[in-house]
Design a protein around this nucleic acid. Structure first.
Length: 489
RNA sequence: CGGGGCGUAGCGUAGCCUGGUAUCGCGCCUGCUUUGGGAGCAGGAGGCCGUCGGUUCAAAUCCGGCCGCCCCGACCA
């Protein structure tokens, strides 16, 4: 079976799909728009979860779990929230099936009195619950996160990037002051940025969403935006300052130190399995997946090469020792001893799967006291003395992690362009995409027009970098700073 | 919901125009030889051709309905 994949240049989206499928990250399922996350893909997601979860705990959050099903009436309480999600909600209307001449059918006598919505996000059920948990400023801040699945009935789906059901975490916090809530919102955006850059080796731009792109029910949406290799932007995480919108909708009040009653201030923030898609599209190449060592399920794979059983045994001895050394240093190592696959097959397979380092040990190495070290990201191999190999590998993993980041940021820098006239703007968008730094007059109308004409949207109003005044690229009206336009996933 | 494509063995496919029960590759099984970039040879197993109906002596092939999936677009994290 040929597992070669189509090149990025030939067909970028097919390239992406083939990597996801052939590297064993996920599979299509029997349910339209829903995917199966396979063990290898799930292992990466688990590593992401663990890292993020540790960071959430570090910043004082606790995990909890709220119901999948939400009474329909909850959705009508926050006006813009309903409006944002109504179009994509799955609705549970019955609770029983029955046998009939036509087979199994819905039992019409088992109709729910109030229909239940499968959560597209949990603000409503959570704020309904928080109402009972919060009475005074002493109950605040309330810092809770949940790991959950959500369902959004999208018209068109893409593996990991947009599926009907997806996995995510959603943090929901309550605070005594607006100031505190805003700080929390920014803290979590920063946490996401740190995670993306440190763990995923994926550079991100932190910013605020324009009104058009804001979360339904938020006062402000902060985000991290990353740039994929095809020049399209991917929203990789969002953190919302919800003001008192949900507190008012669900009547969540507290008594402050002065004994006065006030609505609490809220935030919510999330990242999802979409990050898996971001990971694929940030680093991978035409040979397949490329994983940053910190998230790779296997950081090192060892492939033995031998003719006779005697050699095999000797290699096993060497590898057994290596494995112990690696494990003692916290290096995740896989020894692929399968004798029904040739070394060449294994080489190709682990490249496709993005294992950062491959070691091959054969008779020649036994003789010379070396091991062949192959670096997935640069596709380079070299022979390294087996003495001191553990320290060498440990350093190399760090080096790869950094190198991936450097490469990604170099690409982003080269693809981030200041543009001051609309013709050039359209031209660059059409030819290569990327982040376009342009002035904008701050109105939704202008953003809408630009979107209609170019398909680019404002990814964010960046929080960092120079603040330079200018004139809107579309309307010529004054602008306080450049914003980032891009076509987005 | 529009546009395009596809449905034949576990996977990828040929055959369809011009009807006669299915090709090839990978994978799988057995044996021997192999193993430093997806091994070789020999033998073997595996398919009511998405589904329902029609035409015909005969349908993967022609006609009609239905179902499903993928891609592109509108919607969206």
């Amino acid at each position: 079976m040929s597992k070669a994949i189509v090149s990025r240049e030939q067909d970028y989206s097919q390239w992406y799909n083939e990597i996801v499928i052939k590297a064993g990250l996920a599979d299509y399922s029997a349910v339209k728009g829903c995917m199966v996350i396979k063990p290898y893909g799930y292992a990466i997601w688990e590593r992401m979860q663990r890292a993020l979860d540790d960071m959430f705990k570090e910043t004082g959050h606790s995990n909890a779990y709220f119901p999948l099903l939400i009474p329909k009436s909850f959705f009508s309480k926050e006006a813009s929230h309903v409006e944002g999600f109504a179009k994509e909600c799955a609705v549970v209307t019955h609770y029983r099936l029955k046998n009939s001449p036509e087979g199994i059918v819905v039992d019409e006598t088992a109709k729910l009195e109030e229909e239940l919505i499968i959560r597209p996000t949990s603000e409503t059920i959570i704020w309904n619950t928080y109402k009972g948990w919060i009475q005074s400023y002493r109950d605040l801040p309330l810092l809770i996160n949940q790991w959950a699945n959500v369902v959004r009935w999208e018209m068109r789906t893409r593996l990991f990037l947009r599926t009907t059901e997806f996995l995510w975490q959603e943090g929901h916090t309550a605070h005594a002051t607006a100031q505190e809530a805003i700080e929390e919102t920014i803290r979590m955006m920063d946490t996401y940025a740190e995670f993306a850059e440190k763990w995923m080796s994926m550079p991100v731009i932190k910013g605020i969403k324009s009104a058009n792109e804001r979360f339904a029910g938020a006062v402000d949406t902060y985000c991290i935006e990353s740039l994929m290799q095809d020049g399209k932007a991917l929203q990789s995480g969002t953190s919302h300052f919800l003001g008192q919108n949900f507190a008012k909708a669900f009547d969540v009040k507290f008594l402050n130190k002065e004994g006065k009653s006030d609505f609490v201030w809220a935030t919510s923030w999330g990242v999802s399995t979409r990050l898996m898609g971001a990971l694929v599209m940030t680093h991978s190449d035409d040979e397949g997946l490329v994983l940053p060592p910190m998230l790779a399920p296997h950081q090192v794979v060892i492939v033995p090469i031998y003719r006779e059983e005697e050699q095999h045994q000797k290699i096993n001895e060497v590898v057994a020792k290596l494995k112990n050394e690696f494990k003692a240093e916290g290096i995740r190592v896989l020894y692929d001893e399968a004798d029904n696959r040739s070394p060449g097959w294994k080489f190709a397979e682990y490249e496709l799967k993005g294992v950062p380092i491959r070691l091959a040990i054969g008779p020649k190495d036994l003789e010379k006291g070396t091991v062949e070290v192959y670096r997935r990201d640069l596709k380079k191999k070299e022979f390294v003395p087996i003495d001191g190999i553990t320290a060498y590998i440990k350093n190399l993993l760090v080096e790869i992690q950094k190198s991936l980041y450097d490469k990604a940021i170099a690409f982003r820098t080269a693809s981030t362009i200041k543009v001051d006239d609309y013709t050039t703007f359209k031209d660059i968008l059409e030819k290569k995409g990327g982040f376009l730094l342009a002035h904008w007059d701050g109105t939704s109308e202008t953003e809408e027009k630009i979107k209609e004409e170019t398909k680019a949207t404002i990814r964010c109003i960046p929080l960092e970098g120079e603040k330079e005044e200018g004139k809107c690229i579309y309307s010529g009206k004054p602008s306080a700073q450049r914003v980032i336009f891009a076509k987005a996933y």
